[in-house]
Design a protein around this nucleic acid. Structure first.
Length: 702
RNA sequence: AGCGGGGUGGGGUAGUCAGGAAAACCCGUCGGGCUCAUAACCCGAAGAUCCGUGGUUCAAAUCCACGCCCCGCUACCA
């Protein structure tokens, strides 16, 4: 078989925070499975990625923390590198965009496009915040839509979807400081993306094998018309523009990041001492694959290919098998809403391969899939441990106890049939991974383990060992041979476990130095040492240990206030809880808040409290307030009604209904005029939750 | 609003583009077997009007039309 060159580009994680499971499921893991598979197949793989370290969000994080952007990206880049190592993801080069090497490549690339006539200057209007003293990216401008009066963000209305020009937006506010920004003229360099509509469509016409969603999305996007994009920004943090007159500007982070694929390839070649070697992938015959989640599609199927066309002489993407999203119990990962599972946290608790298994078997290839803790535990325990791990463990312990080495094979009719069946499955796995059907491949590996278990049960070697030692040896030989196959075909999915199996089979090198075709070969009569279980069982109780996660605290808006007919001190409130609808609650606020104070106000509502009748009226939830023994103080959330109030780092996993007694054990207190759980502030999507009035520290919130 | 994806037994998914014999797989439930193995393994059973309505067809989960519901994207956030 002739060797292929495979380039694998994995979307660059942004160095403004920790990696989360979505990045792993959508880009890192499929890229790694694919890369490891091709290396096993004997192909020449160049797989690169790196930390994306420029852009406004990083400068803002740095300002908030009072450090330099460099310190932020150094911190997260180091963390990414460490996490990637722990996850067993193998890159030829995992680089970073703040390196001098990368900057130089970006500037050369930029200049070449400039010389080729694809970059030109143009004046434009942009929002400038006089208080922050900076131009604001769209994301940081909030205002009112001139068409529907809804909330508009940047260049678009969130409510009606209208696209807005900067000057149209009403009552614009800087999202960082709340100041009204001014429109200011600024000159930027534009990339002539519009020139590539036809070439891109032409190029796409040969991509019939792409995933449907990727291809259709891309084609529609282009057909709507491509606009030239400004590719410089008024910023200090980024790659300097290599053109006179633009010394105060930086290259737009997106433009710079995608060039990382090229710069990281060149840097790799330099590192291994063959500085021209990258050309074999970028100028010679090679297939370029890019792994990313769906939000990244246009950058990899339109902008980057157009940039490569404008540059000339470099290979375009061959396939972009973009994934959908991994959601968490049905909700999208979102740092600002406190929804997410961060890689450094999960690595503390679980084996990388257990995480890799669950994400592989549950990969969002065709549509969003959900990470659910109970499902993770179930699949780990019932599939990975029970079917896969146990097959290997029971075979090896049996061999170790009774033979000490891989027993020799005489003949065994059923076993031969099984081997043939397994070989067919291996071919199917090969085909599946080659087509980036990773989920399917993983399922088929499990199928092999299942067939092994069945064969073992039917053959009953524990009986044969007493009656027919030779046949018993043959049966176990067959099983061992199947385990060898499993080790090889699992290597792309669970590199660590695969290598452990390999060593338990008595080999003293690494499975990753071997080839895919060896999965068809017989096993050598190795001595084996005492086997140990590969994976451990998990207990859901150990995972969801924090009692706070039981609470479902939502923001609610008071729409109506009535006096309770049978109680002097109680109000009956009607509240709007967004997606949860309207609710009636009873609250004892009458002594401290009058009706007018309350109407329209946003409050914190414990939404999953077991409903209770208070003097004849059922209260569906409980309004949370601080109590200093003399009076009550309302919590003052700012977010949208229906959105959650959370504590960072504690995953929300509310129980159906919580009793008042259970809730009382969870201590929420006041501190510095804010609400705290333990030493962490309660937050909503707008930030930390303040408390009305002048409340002392240490008051209980109920 | 536009575009894209999705709605399949209790849960999670495959199958849909190239329509066709009993709708496949994993988990869960129930019954049985086994005891080598991390109370793990294996076999069997129950359980689905394949979102709804209408249409095309000898035949529809699959094609067409309309409707309902979820999710994502919409490039100067990454």
């Amino acid at each position: 078989m002739c060797m292929e060159r495979i380039f694998i580009g994995v979307a660059w994680p942004y160095a403004n925070g920790s990696l989360h499971l979505g990045t792993l499921a959508g880009a890192l893991l499929p890229g790694d499975i694919f890369g490891r598979y091709h290396r096993l197949k004997g192909n020449a793989v160049l797989m690169v990625s790196g930390s994306d370290e420029h852009g406004t969000p990083i400068t803002i994080t740095a300002e908030k923390k009072g450090v330099t952007p460099k310190e932020i990206v150094d911190h997260y880049h180091a963390e990414h590198v460490e996490n990637i190592r722990q996850l067993g993801i193998k890159f030829e080069n995992f680089s970073r965009t703040s390196s001098e090497f990368h900057k130089k490549v970006v500037q050369d690339f930029f200049l070449r496009l400039y010389e080729n006539g694809y970059i030109y200057p143009k004046k434009m209007l942009a929002f400038f915040c006089p208080n922050c003293n900076r131009f604001l990216p769209d994301r940081y401008v909030e205002g009112v839509c001139p068409y529907c009066g809804g909330k508009a963000r940047g260049d678009q209305c969130e409510e009606c979807g209208a696209t807005l020009e900067p000057e149209e937006i009403l009552e614009p506010k800087c999202k960082i400081c709340g100041t009204t920004p001014v429109l200011k003229e600024t000159e930027h360099l534009f990339f002539k993306l519009s020139a590539f509509e036809e070439p891109l469509l032409q190029w796409l016409s040969s991509k019939k094998f792409w995933r449907d969603n990727v291809l259709r999305f891309t084609q529609n996007f282009i057909k709507k018309g491509l606009k030239d994009r400004p590719i410089t920004r008024d910023l200090e943090w980024g790659v300097e523009v290599p053109i006179k007159g633009y010394e105060n500007k930086r290259i737009y982070v997106w433009f710079d990041a995608v060039i990382g694929y090229l710069s990281a390839s060149m840097e790799w070649a330099k590192k291994i001492g063959e500085p021209d070697k990258w050309k074999e992938w970028w100028k010679g015959e090679a297939k370029h694959y890019y792994f990313l989640a769906k939000d990244n599609i246009p950058f990899h199927t339109i902008i980057w290919p157009a940039m490569l066309m404008a540059h000339g002489g470099l290979n375009l993407p061959y396939d972009v098998p973009a994934n959908e999203y991994l959601t968490l119990s049905g909700e999208q990962f979102s740092k600002s809403r406190g929804i997410g599972i961060w890689i450094p946290d999960v690595l503390k608790k679980f084996d990388a391969d257990a995480i890799r298994y669950y994400l592989a078997i549950n990969m969002p290839e065709k549509h969003d899939t959900d990470w659910k803790w109970d499902d993770f535990v179930a699949k780990n325990n019932n599939e990975l441990v029970a079917i896969y791990g146990n097959f290997i463990h029971r075979v090896l312990t049996f061999i170790h106890k009774n033979f000490g080495k891989i027993p020799s094979y005489k003949e065994e009719e059923k076993g031969e049939k099984l081997i043939e069946e397994v070989h067919n499955i291996i071919k199917e796995i090969d085909d599946a991974i080659g087509k980036c059907h990773f989920k399917d491949g993983m399922k088929k590996i499990m199928k092999i383990a299942q067939l092994g278990n069945r064969y073992l049960n039917e053959s009953e070697p524990w009986k044969l060992i007493k009656e027919d030692r030779e046949k018993c040896a043959s049966v176990l030989h067959v099983c061992a041979r199947i385990i060898k196959s499993i080790a090889i075909v699992s290597a792309p999915y669970m590199p660590n476990a695969a290598d452990k199996i390999w060593k338990m089979l008595g080999y003293d090198d690494s499975v990753h130095e071997h080839g895919w075709e060896e999965a068809f070969d017989d096993i050598e009569p190795n001595q084996i040492s005492s086997p140990a279980p590969l994976f451990r069982k998990l207990d859901l109780k150990d995972i969801i240990e924090d009692e706070f996660s039981k609470l479902d605290i939502r923001i609610a808006r008071i729409v109506d206030v009535q006096n309770h007919p049978n109680a002097d001190r109680l109000y009956v409130l009607k509240v709007d809880v967004g997606e949860l609808g309207q609710r009636t609650i009873v609250a004892g606020l009458k002594e401290w808040y009058n009706e007018e104070d309350l109407k329209g106000r946003k409050i914190a509502l414990l939404a999953n409290l077991k409903p209770a009748k208070l003097r004849g009226i059922t209260s569906e939830g409980m309004l949370l307030a601080a109590d200093d023994g003399k009076r009550a103080y309302l919590l003052l959330p700012q977010g949208k009604e229906g959105s959650r109030i959370f504590v960072e780092g504690i995953e929300s996993n509310p129980v159906e209904k919580i009793t008042y007694d259970e809730f009382r054990k969870i201590k929420l207190v006041t501190k510095d005029g804010k609400a705290f759980y333990r030493d962490k502030p309660l937050k909503d999507e707008k930030g930390e939750i303040r408390i009305d009035g002048n409340v002392k520290d240490g008051c209980i919130i109920r």
